[in-house]
């Protein structure tokens, strides 16, 4: 499923990386610890996290993730947004919690990881 379809279905707010919404999403990964995302998230995954700071962009780009969803209405720092735009990394936000976003995404994508 393309990222823009997910953005529409889950009513996510696009905060950065608008030009990269055509990416194919391979699955989801939920973690707030950068070390876990670094070790566990796979290329093309959409990363669900509470963290909205600069290092999230670094980890997501390194792992070639499809994008980041910052949940629970958490703020994203301006430097993170600027860097994400530069890298073409979509940063999406929602007021929904991680459990609910993961639940809905899982239902959309089926039993991929």
């Amino acid at each position: 499923m393309k990222l823009h379809e997910i953005v529409e279905t889950l009513a996510l707010t696009v905060r950065a990386g608008r030009r990269s919404l055509d990416t194919e999403v391979t699955g989801g990964y939920a973690a707030d610890l950068l070390s876990c995302a670094m070790a566990g998230a796979e290329p093309g995954n959409l990363w669900l996290t509470l963290q909205g700071h600069l290092n999230v962009v670094a980890v997501a780009t390194l792992n070639e993730l499809a994008g980041v969803i910052v949940t629970e209405g958490k703020p994203v720092s301006p430097d993170a947004l600027a860097k994400a735009d530069e890298e073409g990394l979509p940063i999406l936000t929602t007021t929904l919690g991680t459990f609910e976003v993961a639940g809905r995404l899982w239902a959309l994508l089926g039993a991929t990881r």
Binding site: G27, G28, Y29, A30, A31, G40, L48, L96, G97, T98, F99, E100, A102, G103, R104, L105, W106, A107, A111, R113
Partner: peptide
């Protein structure tokens, strides 16, 4: 994973 855990429990009907 946490993602899959949430996905399965959400599909099983547990609310957030």
């Amino acid at each position: 994973t946490m993602y899959e855990t949430c996905g399965r429990l959400y599909a099983a009907g547990l609310p957030s």
